[in-house]
């Protein structure tokens, strides 16, 4: 594996897909990125440092220190200029640079005068954002300082790759339980009142599959079910592997009726799977569905409702959906 791929410029769709792959936009602050920003500020003696990720119409900061902001429009982002080139962007005095002299971050707070940014390049060659330092007095930069910032940028990208692999179950490609829990907690605490639903699902008779065909076939079944589920979910939904053969899904922006229909679709799709390794035996799943309602008091309560529905689905004969 190499993280020094050639820049793929002029492919905005590919660039955005590369950014989305990290599933990092709008996530809570994380200490590893905060630590890096803090070090960058200290080492380079800058009042402001940031990890800026360039979304379709905004720059969103995974970590920023020295100014109290979480995002800005892309149209005023210095970092949007940085990602268009493979080279570091040096602005020694923004008031004398025609690209930035009228920028509201220069004419108003925080009064940016110098900027140094280096691209964050994904292993597949897309500049997904930049690591930058800013200050309110003119400044020139030595080659050694630029190299330090580039080294930190490479470290951020490999840290993002580590973050990605450590949050995903390598067998099914779904989130790990701890990663799913963190996202669910964030969702629950966001006070977002759009309707949503939690699905707890379990592969029926999985132990018997392992006992009859062996664990390698059990893994194949898990991988296949994970694939079918992911294929049938929207980009905004979340899926995680919750236990051995259990998955948990969060459907966002769905009414109870739509959640039920979607659950049925998932159940049907899995039942249509044909795996040669199972010698004609069908795979089925049971699903417990719990829509979010004002009576849900906590995440634990919400999970308990989904778990109770799953229990009911199992006891009613499996291969079915039961809603709380």
């Amino acid at each position: 594996m190499t993280f020094t791929a050639k820049l793929k410029a002029n492919d905005e769709q590919g660039r955005l897909a590369a950014l989305k792959r990290y599933q990092i936009l709008d996530t809570a602050p994380e200490v590893e990125f905060e630590d890096i920003i803090s070090l960058v500020k200290t080492v380079l003696g800058a009042p402001i440092a940031a990890i800026s990720l360039i979304d379709s119409d905004r720059q969103w900061f995974k970590a920023i220190s020295g100014v109290d902001v979480t995002q800005t429009p892309r149209s005023i982002a210095f970092c949007d200029h940085t990602i268009r080139d493979g080279m570091p962007l040096k602005v020694t005095d923004a008031t004398r640079d025609p690209r930035f002299a009228d920028n509201p971050m220069v004419t108003g707070a925080p009064g940016v005068r110098y900027y140094l940014g280096v691209p964050l390049r994904s292993p597949d060659g897309y500049n997904i954002g930049s690591l930058c330092i800013l200050g309110d007095t003119p400044r020139d930069f030595s080659d050694d300082e630029v190299k330090v910032l580039q080294s930190f940028a490479s470290l951020i990208v490999s840290q993002m790759e580590l973050r990605l692999v450590s949050r995903h179950d390598t067998l099914t490609g779904t989130l790990t339980r701890s990663a799913f829990d963190a996202r669910l907690k964030s969702e629950f605490e966001s006070r977002d009142k759009t309707p949503k639903a939690l699905l707890l699902l379990d592969i029926d008779h999985f132990k018997s599959i392992n006992d009859t065909f062996g664990h390698a076939t059990g893994d194949t079944a898990l991988r296949a079910v994970g694939e079918v589920l992911k294929k049938n979910l929207r980009e905004t939904d979340l899926i995680g592997r919750y236990g051995g053969e259990e998955f948990l899904i969060l459907l966002r922006n769905v009414t109870p009726d739509v959640a039920l229909a979607q659950s049925e679709r998932l159940r049907r799709s899995v039942s249509q799977l044909k795996l040669a390794e199972l010698g004609g035996r069908r795979l089925t799943i049971s699903i417990g569905l719990a829509s979010y309602t004002p009576s849900v008091t906590s995440i634990e309560d919400w999970l308990r409702r989904a778990d109770k529905s799953l229990y009911d689905a199992k006891h009613a004969g499996r291969n079915q959906v039961v809603a709380a």
Binding site: F3, V148, Q150, S151, F152, S154, S158, Q159
Partner: peptide, 17 residues
């Protein structure tokens, strides 16, 4: 491989510092 890449980046950063 990801761990090795991260390690190499730490070494490069050490040299740059």
């Amino acid at each position: 491989p990801v761990v090795h890449e991260h390690y190499q980046n730490l070494v490069q950063l050490t040299k740059a510092l």
